[in-house]
Nucleic acid binder design. Structure first.
Lengths: 215, 215
DNA sequence: TTTTTGATACCTATAAGTAGGTAGCTGGTA
DNA sequence: TACCAGCTACCTACTTATAGGTATCAAAAA
């Protein structure tokens, strides 16, 4: 018997799902919440096995944040995102938040039940449609990254940037690159100017964003 | 007519594919290379539309690096990774490098042709099997991230970390948080000690890894 | 009530980073 | 041959960050 909690600010959705699943002998709807805060309040005593939540909700806590909090406080609860959107960024953020499944609101009853059963068993459930959107979005994100600012750097500048991003100090970098610390400082200045960042922090952020280290 | 270049250090693979596609009237094999460097040498004069490459090759340049270089120097060429491995990390790195497709070596002829046609048309092609591995891997990676070092920080420390990662200086942070610069410095020291990083660079790297900014 | 933790604030001292400037040498290109 | 970019190196000057230490107060927990 799977204890299922539904979270969506549209009652018609939670009612619809409840109605859809009412004949299922293995799934028991133990509650319906209209918001993230309400869900967080009720989870400790309702003790669901699986939570299905929408992303967009009217209050401060959206479904992704809810997922993150529930994951942290109740790691045994499996969470499925139920969304209208197959937006790749949202899918990625849901996974990062700890969701075990992501299905769309046009999903049929059979797939819904499959998703619930899968995550209850500790597996993941992402529909083919969601998978395709995710991958297409990742490829597109990468294309939007095509204009790589690090292409503006010379070979030595790029080498030096990698060492900065690996937490070496100027004296350490000087030693590794067989140059003087004066030269390191000059390169740093040129790099920061070329990349139009405020400081080393901005540089490191950009470097990680563009995967200049193979990590 | 799609001009196709094959890159794999196992001749039996490139021969096999060539043989498989020889009856296809829309695809022309214009070359077979046994290594990344060989491919990079030949691409400028062979001018393929599509490159199919393995990942693991004996020399310094693997298929992912090859993809990255080809993408940069010849952005009109579409690249498909052909691999034995459905390893999520490799799939992600392939996408980051610029691959438009990823198929496994157990792929049938029809799917191979579909992949080639798709990427030639500027679309992506990732098999369902690859998609599922990618998503499962991403979820698993996220689970491995569960032990979030930032859980060790207090509320104020976390708030201050976010401001550091947003490139604010100590005086700026002091002003934003209504505290003295001395206190900022003390917090910084405590944070760096708690997280066991070398410096601000390490802190920013960890912060980005754990998505503490909503970017 | 006592202890602990978190937040705040300050001291001294030093290292590291930032920012402006200058200049010479080498190799590649026009 | 002349020019340019990249690399290297140094100067002055200042800001910022790091690192060690100390201490008080308030709130929460034991």
């Amino acid at each position: 018997m799977i204890r299922l909690l539904l979270v969506d600010d549209h009652e018609i959705i939670t009612d619809g799902i409840a109605s859809l699943l009412e004949e299922d002998t293995e799934i028991q709807i133990i509650g319906q919440c209209a918001s993230g805060p309400e869900a967080l309040q009720k989870i400790p005593y309702l003790k669901p096995d699986v939570v299905i939540t929408d992303i967009e909700m009217g209050d401060d806590i959206d479904g992704i944040e809810l997922t993150s909090i529930v994951q942290k406080e109740h790691p045994d609860i499996s969470i499925i995102i139920l969304s209208m959107y197959d937006d790749s960024i949202k899918i990625q953020k849901s996974i990062e938040a700890g969701a075990m499944g992501y299905i769309l609101k046009n999903t049929g009853k059979q797939e819904l039940i499959k998703a619930i059963q899968n995550v209850f068993e500790g597996k993941t459930y992402f529909s083919n449609e969601v998978n395709n959107s995710l991958v297409k979005g990742m490829v597109q994100q990468n294309k939007n990254n095509t204009n790589n600012p690090f292409d503006r750097l010379t070979k030595r500048e790029l080498e030096l940037t990698k060492l900065i991003a690996q937490e070496y100090t100027n004296p350490e970098i000087a030693e590794k690159m067989y140059i003087s610390e004066f030269t390191v400082k000059t390169h740093r200045r040129n790099i920061i100017k070329k990349l139009d960042v405020k400081s080393t922090v901005g540089l490191v952020k950009l470097a990680l964003k563009h995967h200049i280290l193979n990590e």
